[in-house]
């Protein structure tokens, strides 16, 4: 029996919304999806008219949909934004080079300027080279930390006012769960905020317009809009622990579809006890980037790579920051500890 769309009633429903369970036709779904993103943007007042906004594009589904929706909404509601794409080339052969091709195609379709920043030019290291030294374990730490800074640097080069990223509701909920599992109260508190305040020099505010959009709906949107995206997992080992949280979240969603938003609600309403130690934000004394330590994480990681001590940035070695800053050599014992990663 054909089911009619619960919104316009006339047309035949094509899909069941993962978020609410309603049956909708294609057009109503597009409308609803776009409208929700619009509401998110308006309610959180993410942008101001006249701003230049960079969309962090990886070529994956989230950022492709984000770029598409942002362009559509910018025209429909006259946000008055100047949009551009920014991509980070981590230097992963067989993965990023292919996805960058997708980004380049998107750029032509959407007629947006594109900027690609690469790890190689910023840090002198490609991920391929890093993995060679670090091994398959823990390399995501490097990639993640470097990417954050690379995006900022790229945004500074382009002189944009804001960056928006394709983080979806599933990502946010998963991060909430991860931070509960890790006991990371500082991150737990800020991981649900939709946009980072301008944190100071050299940091461009970021926002997540897809914060309340379900991953499944993003895929549905891309599927029905026939958007061109790249859907291969990174060839280097995925984060095993995060995988547990992800599976848990998917199971929760299958029990109660609203779980994802519910978890975000939980995260938004947490209140941390007074007196719990919170990291104080300062700046890195080497590169000037924001950091809660004397040295920012990417400088520590880079130092580790350059000294051939990859473990330097993995785990906590704050004691050694002084030595790194003054360019002193480490003792043999310290070096031995930091050398081997596989243990």
């Amino acid at each position: 029996m054909p089911v009619s769309c619960s919104s316009c009633v006339e047309k035949r429903a094509m899909l069941k919304r993962p978020k609410t369970g309603h049956s909708l036709c294609k057009e109503c779904f597009f409308m609803a999806f776009e409208e929700e993103v619009h509401q998110t943007i308006v309610n959180a007042s993410l942008f101001k008219s006249g701003e230049t906004v960079a969309i962090a594009a990886s070529g994956g589904k989230d950022s492709t949909v984000l770029a598409h929706v942002m362009k559509v909404l910018n025209e429909r509601y006259n946000y008055g934004l100047e949009l551009m794409l920014i991509s980070v080339d981590e230097g992963i052969t067989g993965y990023r080079d292919d996805s960058l091709e997708t980004v380049k195609r998107n750029q032509q379709q959407y007629e947006l300027p594109l900027k690609i920043v690469s790890y190689e030019e910023l840090y002198g290291w490609t991920m391929d080279a890093i993995v060679k030294q670090v091994g398959r374990k823990n390399n995501c730490t490097f990639c993640g930390v470097f990417r954050r800074q690379a995006l900022d640097r790229g945004a500074l080069m382009l002189k944009v006012d804001k960056i928006c990223t394709g983080h979806n509701a599933d990502d946010v909920a998963e991060t909430v769960l991860m931070n509960v599992l890790r006991g990371d109260i500082a991150r737990l508190r800020r991981c649900t905020t939709i946009s980072t305040a301008s944190e100071g020099e050299g940091v461009v505010p970021r926002c997540k317009p897809l914060k309340y959009a379900y991953e499944k709906e993003i895929v549905l949107y891309a599927y029905f809009k026939k958007l061109d995206y790249f859907s291969t997992e990174c060839i280097y080992s995925p984060n095993a622990y995060r995988g547990h949280a992800r599976t848990f979240l998917k199971d929760l969603e299958s029990i109660r579809p609203s779980s994802i938003v519910d978890i975000i609600h939980s995260g938004e309403n947490l209140s941390v006890r007074e007196g719990v130690k919170m990291p104080v934000q300062g700046t890195c004394s080497r590169c000037g980037y924001i950091s809660s330590q004397a040295l920012c994480k990417s400088c520590v990681l880079l130092e580790g790579l350059n000294r051939g001590l990859p473990k330097l940035g993995i785990g906590k070695h704050h004691r050694l920051h002084g030595k790194i800053l003054s360019q002193q050599p480490l003792t043999e014992k310290e070096e031995r500890k930091l050398k081997s990663v596989e243990s």
Partner: peptide, 10 residues
């Protein structure tokens, strides 16, 4: 957390 009781965790 999964039930949306974040405000009442304590």
């Amino acid at each position: 957390v999964s039930l949306g009781r974040g405000a009442h965790l304590a």
